[in-house]
Write a protein that binds this DNA or RNA. Sequence first.
DNA 1: GCAAGGTC
Length: 748
Amino acid sequence: MGSLIIAEKANVALRIATSLSEGKVSREKVGSSNVLRFQRDGREYTVLSLRGHIIELDYPEEFSQWKIDNLKDLIRATPVENVKVKGLAYALKKLDQENSEIIVATDFDREGELIGVETLRLMGRRDGVRRARFSALTKYDLVQSFGNLAEVDYNLAASAEARGIIDLMWGAALTRFFSVTTKRLGREFISVGRVQSPTLTILVERENEIRSFVPEKYYELNMVVNGVRFAYEGNPIKSREEAEKLLERLGKDGKVVVLERTEKERTIYRPIPFSTTEFLRDANRIGISVERAMAIAETLYQHGKISYPRTDNTVYPRTVSIKSIIGALSGSYLMKEIEHLTSNSRLIPSRGKVETTDHPPIYPTTPLKKSELKGDYFKIYDLVARRFMATVAENADILDTEYVVEKNGLRFKYTASKALRRGWMDYYPIVYYQEKIDPGFKVGDQPNFSDSKIDEKNTNPPPRFSQGSLIEKMEKELLGTKSTRHEIIQKLYDRGFIEGNPIRVKPLGMAMGESLILNSEAVARPEMTAKLEQEMDQIASGSKKKQEVVEDSRMILTTLLDDLINKADKINEKFYETLRLEKVVGKCPKCGADLIIDYRNDSRFIKCSGPSNDFFQYLPRTGKIEVTDEKCPVCGLFLIKVIRKGERPEMRCVDSKCAYNTSRETFGECPSDGGNLVLRRSRNFTRFIGCSNYPNCKVTLSIPQKADLIPTSKKCEVDGFPIAIFKFGKEQVEQCLNPKCKSRSSKR
DNA sequence: GCAAGGTC
């Protein structure tokens, strides 16, 4: 009888086996599960690799119908534990019988402890169980850990279990309540959760700050001396009158006197090693979404190109050998930069504030040739490799030179800047610094100035969150984990709450967010997570029982539900009121009431929401619609902007039949029956030219999708089809519309 | 058709 070792993931299982084995490691399948077998001290060991949690909580069958009536029973019900992997229970039973000892070797954290306990429970095992605790996957750490086995911490596991039960309870009850109350069921359901809802609230409140922001005008007085721009020391100036007076006192041109020249050195510190948050933020800065960046990192990790991508650690452990990584990279496409780095740096790595011991920061593990990866995969690998280089490079040293010049008692400043040592900035792909030219004045010089003028400016509202800055904010508020934050953000997109990057909150997100803030403050704020964290610590330390904490949470949720159910009608009303107001895109040109965009089946339209209901226009089926203030030069209605991916934004009259639109889409007479040849879109949205007499006339012409087509009044002499201008970016060709026309085949 | 947490 041997020992069964339970590992949380495949690579850990492999490290354990190769580190402890005294000979061969063999692979096998037990059912559908992967196991590794090896021997040590004459004992037989089997390592089972799991894939994270094996149990998923759900409510019993009887609660499958979403309705308000059973919500309070729902939260009192005990969730069912479903096994996520088919056949795993069988494999565990079998392995249990084969081994006298079980060693839980899952990750050394709360969820890891629970994954271990889930496994034991599924096996029905309580005796002969021990726990290996290790925080690095080196042979040394693993041998130490397996030589000093501890006991399974059932309290720690219970704390994670409480988290699971509470998350499901609140999530399911409130998701159901809001979905049923607003009658958004099926695919349209609206979700509520301990992490996603406070995240949505953060975005909603920022959106409101931006909307209620009143920009204030201010003025700046500037002048140009020797090609650089000097700014008045008294900037910003409150009023235009004051600014005009100063400008008058200064004059249009003439001489200034250089009063001061001061040199100051400063440092731009090299970045800290890549934690998941840092990585995602910078991946987002180079234009890759956090969801995609994480998926690519996972693939690169699976292929051994980079280290484990889910980590909070920002300090390289001693076991990560800087020298050998540098050595490896020197055989890669980064060869030249590495050469430069090794001769200009002491290669002592930077350190961040957070130091954990479970995984190292993200670093490249295999050198690559340029051709090995493409597109975003290359960009992500390159980012990781260059970040590593930046963390072992030297800081950048900057020399700022501040000049003060004077004219008629008015003082102006300019700061030149130059890198004395570029250090890490030579290797990292994100630009943080720009040199500013030095005019080279000495004190007492009297150079000429010109272009003195007043710039009118506006104060700016706070910026929208990007995916990257939102990830950072979530980390700061303790919302989610390194492995889930990007998923939560993606969930908000998928639910139709938010769009774009920088992130804008869509009408549905605003309606939901406002509703949560108003009615369910507890789940709209990060404090719920903070409180849960405290309680989990109490369960782990034994000062509270899991049942107590769950029961407590159940009471609070019951009270909240009572309140919500009482206010259900009002909540519904307010929700749709907000949704309606959020959809307002302008004022009705006929009665002045609000115009809204709405959808039915496949079509999309803009209509008046006022009582008279006298404005209605269909909108193009594709693209994002923005209503503009511009009047249509043809009919006097307003123009809309249609934004489509990969195409230049199109300005259209809101009236689809207005000549403003059709003149650009009508190319001339159809040679077959005299109808009009017009631009159409097929069901899959590709553009083509067709006869207006369709279906009687079936003339269709395919056109290059990337071309802008401009009608002319000319006719082709060869086949009689109209001639149009095909614009490809800056290039353009005037030719027959018919792609099969002989006049075209001669070209190209 | 609900959550968040692991991992692929």
